[in-house]
Design a protein around this nucleic acid. Sequence first.
DNA 1: GCCGTTTTCGGCCCGACTGTTTTCAGTCG
Length: 577
Amino acid sequence: MTAQPLPSNEAVAEQLDLLGDLLEIEGEQSFRIAAYRRAAIRVRETATSIAQLALDGRAKELAGIGKTIEEKIVQIVDTGEIEALTKRKAEIPPDVVRFTRLPGLGPKTARKFWKELGITTVEGLRAAAEGEQLRTLSGVGPKLEQAIIKALDAAGDEGPREETRPLLGDGLPAALAAVDELLAFPGTVRVSEAGSLRRRRETFKDIDLIATSSDPAGLIAHFASLPWVLDVIAQGETKATVVSREGFKFDLRVVQPECFGNLLQHFTGSKEHNVQLREEAQRRGLSISEYGITTEATGEITTHEDESGVYAFLGYDWIPPELREGAGELGAARLDASGSSGLPDLVAPGSLRGELHCHSTWSDGRASLEEMAAAAIARGYEYMAICDHSQRLRDGRLEQQAAEVAALNERLAPFRVLRGVEVNIRADGSLDLTDEELGGLDWVVASLHSSFARSPTERVLAAMASPHVDCIGHLTTRLINKRPPAPIDVEQVVAGAAATGTFLEINGQPDRLDLKDVHARLAGEAGVGIVCNSDAHTTTTLHYADLALSVARRAWLTAPQVVNTLPWAQLQARLKR
DNA sequence: GCCGTTTTCGGCCCGACTGTTTTCAGTCG
């Protein structure tokens, strides 16, 4: 008999989250619910198969997962679903969970609507709101009825659903431009982006900005009247919320300079990082809020202008925002007697020396080889591998491109254009160029582009076995918000990459970011060299490599682990051939 | 449900806002 594929970490996390939602509607104790949600976060942050860990009895080793949840994960492997979840799904109408997706409507209220008014569908909820039935309950008034009708109108036929989170690569330029605009306003002292965008998470909900100013009211007014502001949702003395033309929600808070560090730390998150930080401080008699740190014995409140001061006061090294996910960074950042910590020296922004995956008009790129090279030089790069798609380089075109590369190198030295290719991994695992063709190139990236469900792991392993393949491109082929990752066993691929000396790419296309952070961390820990690439198809998108680099930082990687921080001669010496 | 340098029980981060109330529960980040 063939073994069933194990459930993905995402599938396990979704069951844990849903169980948490249902328990919450049941009115279960809040800490128990929080435990399921915390476990779901931990499962998503784990690179290896949580199902396999649970089967081995080792899931308990992860923070936030104990005996009970480990058993529930084994139930998913055995029967497809957590028993407690099956039972509760039979009791609680599915739409009641969807009620809680409406703004201002939480589990307590959803339960009341169901239990006391017998409302079990979204349509029923709308009818009750319109018929002014909801206000018969204590704690519910006309405002909530109006809000529900409005939200249901906005949600359309599908009813309430999870919002699609915009991409980091789309929001980050807007956020950084806004920071510069605020800094240029008279009286502004400091501005920083905060929230998940500052942590460079792959997607975000809204764009948080924190500022100090000698003229807070003036800065808020200026912000609300910037030309790209489409709508002002809220505007007060110290805080404003606006929507940009691109549809991004911006939150600006103007704070007192003496606690800028406390607020920036608080609003950078993540929630899990802050909870861990506060729990640990609590054990030592310190209470942390966004306004300062209270020493409970004396009632004394300490504030800090800088984030580093906040962490230092608590006995930690300053933690780069990209690491603040509650994934072991606090333990690593703890300062020892000599004042040093175990945090990695993260690969620095701007430290890439070359691009190792971009396209030109030789395949589906928009710019000529020469234009791409000029753009790479303008970015300060020393080299650039042109990696057009192999399908378009057959019938002697590879040789023609070689002639153009040679001519360019004559003119552009010491800048170096490397002869590369993005070779397609076929459905049978073979490469669609011959060994002879590949052997003549400086740099070969191999990628999956089709038939994602057909033995993708085996095909990638076969490609890595080729002595000519230097790197695997966008491993899982996911497109964020559009296409799920191929069912690839990343642990096996990482082991194969380590064994064969093949590098793995972090592809910086905003909707790819593939490898994702936890997978890149796994690869780094296995000693696999990582390449940060833009996969640019135009001269204006080479900076996507910076997004790839931010993923590398979220993966705890240092410069020596990111091989295109090396000069080409040194990188060449690390190739397997 | 998880967890432990106050440890196997009894805790579990902190504050703002809103709508509904006359002191607060629920929701949100």
